[in-house]
Nucleic acid binder design. Structure first.
Length: 734
DNA sequence: AGCACGCCGACT
DNA sequence: GTCGGCGTGCTC
């Protein structure tokens, strides 16, 4: 008995029905009738009428309680000729939906993000030589027949092109019976990677780590490994061996990367090892390519996908391994529509599929570190650099002892180091994680500060563009010449540095040096790639960059890395500030020393004793992580213990901050407040329009609720805020 | 989420 | 007189 077949009419004629997840925020699947001549099974991808339009949906396992009026049932329009979603994929979608409190239809929609891909790609028309030679021979015909003699099929235009003729020659031969038309399967988007294409280049601890991973793959069960290795230690080469083993088993592999790390150089590295590129999956893939990749992933034709977080929802035919590279990267969090952290959901995907997951980072997230300490993850440690690479010498520059000149932001120590580097013909990288010229502008006459009219943040001056901009909401206006408050001209003062201002200072000290600013607002991705290539070739002496210089690219001549303001970001109230700063500074200083040249890092700070600075210069982060775990416990951030807590949710960070301020004043029993984005998975307990969560923890949750009710009742922005008391089990994703 | 329906302001 | 803004409500 087909369990999808429900007898809705007692003795009346039987009507086949099926539950279908539709791309809509309904709490459960909808019922559709199945035409007599149609066969569906759980996982079938179908087209159904919904309101006035046709949408793609998935036949689901169960309907749940069903009280829908049978008269409302509409028939499934068609079943796509496409492999059904596997049982694992369906279980994954249900799990993610339940965990993130997202309607299952919206999660399923993420797996169907390739509009026209559900029907098979059309076959390619090809020609094969029949052995029949034409009565009359010509030179052009001769050339064509010489090519086809080997018996392989050709496309009509391909053959004409290869023979240097027009396609009418081919048509003429076909009319003589020289060719038969055959249909060829569409070409694969990428060639099959060969696990034994190039021998692995492994040494020392890499060999053991790779052997451990291969062993895990051979066991073929769920397990999580954390590759914890410093920059340049060869982490990629190690997980490539795990991939090779999965390929030998004939199963598929998913490599998750933060979008920005999906570079040509990564794909080339993969190709060097496996003889073919992985298929790419990210948001700006051309639609046609997107469909092909989706299709070939479902059929198993594509064996390895390298993708951004959304690739996690691709319906693999037989996934056998998931890798999460740069697992600490905040880009894994999706904070719109469906809120999830792809790193955590990758672990869930592996558990449901009963295969290994590998998390990779030079600076693991505190969450992963805790999971490793608790024995949930196996740690593979790579403590040394690979090959020629040597770690840069790192030194703190105490800005209290070596202050910059008046009006400047670079310490004399830093300026001397830049000078020596440039003299040697090497490159210097100055890192400041702040776009624009100055983060705050004020009037020296009346004290007016330029503030965004739409939100509350300061307007940032962008001198190259002649604008002042809000980095929060995107508001921008031309830089005014006079103070809008008191009308005074020429008395507006720029406060604090941005990369543009550092460039100005550098140009003053080194007028002959070739200086370039790399900032996301100054160039598109294409332009950026060109600039990065030019820099790698030595076409710049001093590079000044924001966050985007932290990732990926290697600069062989880069022997000095200078952090302009290492303290930036430590004081913004984010409970993860120290961890983020540590990760960012590690990445940036890791840009130096990738070749044999001796390299240095100078870190300007007012807090040389801060644990982040100590961890960075000592290269030993153990104490730092231990401390961070303690701080997290105090702030009640995941992934710790089971807590009785209260969560307030708000529509914006500003609103959440307002609530936090109010709470600190009005509720003395509070022991911790943390403001979280919606993808903090274990806290994904409130849905709706609310975008930020304020997790408040106190001695007694009933007291907390009372405080919160009072505060929200009196607050000016209470609209849309709700209260929930919850028990959180932050480890529940395992 | 998407789309239709519905009720009030500036324009061919 | 219409085009079009986005508020409200519904979809098996």
């Amino acid at each position: 008995m087909n369990r999808l077949t429900d007898d809705l009419f007692g003795g009346a004629p039987k009507l086949k029905t099926a539950p279908v997840l539709v791309p809509m925020p309904a709490p459960r699947a909808y019922s559709y009738s199945v035409p007599d001549d149609m066969a569906v099974e759980p996982g079938s991808i179908v087209q159904v009428p919904l309101g006035s339009r046709l949408v793609a949906g998935v036949v689901w396992d169960r309907l749940g309680e069903d009280d829908v009026d049978p008269k409302k049932l509409r028939p499934i329009a068609k079943v796509f000729d496409c492999p059904p979603l596997t049982k694992e994929m369906r279980a994954f979608i249900d799990w993610v939906a339940a965990y993130t409190l997202t309607p299952p239809g919206l999660v399923a929609r993420m797996a169907l993000r390739a509009p026209a891909a559900f029907d098979p790609e059309p076959m390619i028309e090809g020609l094969r030589f029949t052995g029949v030679r034409p009565e009359r021979m010509t030179a052009a015909r001769e050339r064509v027949l010489a090519l086809v003699d080997e018996g392989f099929p050709w496309t009509r235009s391909g053959l004409a092109h290869a023979a240097g003729t027009s396609s009418s020659v081919i048509d003429g031969l076909a009319a003589q019976g020289s060719f038969e038309t055959i249909f060829l399967p569409p070409p694969p988007v990428v060639a099959r990677p060969d696990p034994d294409y190039a021998a692995p280049r492994l040494e020392g601890p890499q060999t053991d780590a790779a052997a451990d991973l291969v062993e895990q793959i051979r066991n073929g069960h769920f397990a999580v490994a954390l590759i914890d290795g410093i920059t340049g230690s060869g982490k990629t080469e190690v997980y490539f061996e795990a991939i090779a083993e999965v390929l030998r088993q004939g199963r598929q592999v998913l490599i998750l990367l933060p979008e920005i790390a999906l570079t040509a150089s990564f794909l080339e590295r993969f190709q060097d090892r496996f003889g073919a590129k992985p298929a790419e999956w990210h948001s700006d893939l051309a639609p046609r390519m997107r469909e092909k990749v989706w299709r070939q992933v479902t059929t198993g034709e594509v064996r390895v996908v390298a993708g951004a977080r959304s690739a996690l929802f691709l319906p693999f035919e037989d996934l056998g391994l998931v890798i999460v590279d740069e697992e600490h990267d905040p880009a894994y969090k999706q904070e719109d529509r469906v809120f999830y952290n792809a790193r955590d959901m990758a672990v869930v995907r592996a558990r449901i599929g009963n295969f290994p997951a590998v998390l990779v980072s030079a600076t693991p997230s505190v969450e992963s570190r805790v999971n490793a300490d608790n024995g949930r993850y196996q740690v593979l440690h790579l403590p040394t650099r690979f090959g020629e690479a040597a770690l840069p010498d790192l030194h703190l520059v105490d800005l209290r002892r070596h202050p910059p000149q008046r009006g400047g932001f670079l310490s004399p120590v830093m300026i001397r180091a830049i000078g020596k580097t440039v003299e040697r013909g090497e490159q210097a990288l100055l890192f400041l994680n702040r776009r624009g010229y100055a983060p705050l502008t004020l009037c020296r006459v009346c004290g007016h500060r330029f503030q965004c009219p739409q939100c509350a943040s300061w307007l940032v001056e962008h001198r190259f563009r002649g604008q002042i901009q809000c980095h929060h909401c995107g508001y921008a206006e031309r830089t005014p010449e006079a103070c809008p408050e008191c009308g005074t001209f020429d008395h507006l003062a720029a406060c604090g540095p941005g990369v543009e201002r550092i460039a100005e200072e550098v140009e003053k000290h080194f007028p002959e040096a070739r200086t370039i600013v790399l900032s996301s607002d100054l160039m598109g991705v294409k332009r950026l790639r060109l600039e990065l290539e030019a820099i790698a070739k030595g076409e710049a002496d001093i590079v000044i960059g924001t966050q985007l210089v932290a990732k990926g690219h290697n600069f062989p001549l880069m022997t000095l890395v200078g952090i302009v303001d290492a303290d930036l970001g430590l004081s913004n109230g984010d409970p993860r500030a120290a961890e983020r700063t540590f990760q960012l500074l590690s990445q940036v200083t890791g840009r130096a020393g990738r070749t044999g040249l001796k390299s240095h890092g100078l870190i300007q700070t007012y807090q040389p004793l801060h644990p982040v600075m100590q961890a960075i210069v000592s290269g030993d982060a153990r104490d730092f992580y231990e401390r961070e775990v303690g701080e997290r416990e105090k702030a009640m951030l995941p992934p710790f213990g089971r807590l009785a807590s209260v969560i307030v949710s708000a529509d914006s960070r500003a609103e959440a901050e307002g609530h936090a301020r109010g709470l600190r004043q009005s509720a003395p029993g509070i022991s911790g407040i943390a403001i979280l984005g919606p993808a903090e998975a274990p806290l994904a307990l409130i849905r709706g329009r609310h975008r930020f969560r304020l997790l408040v923890h106190g001695q007694r949750s009933s007291d907390m609720q009372a405080y919160l009710r009072t505060m929200l009742a009196n607050g000016p922005k209470e609209r849309g805020s709700i209260l929930v008391q919850v028990d959180i089990d932050p480890q529940s994703f395992l």
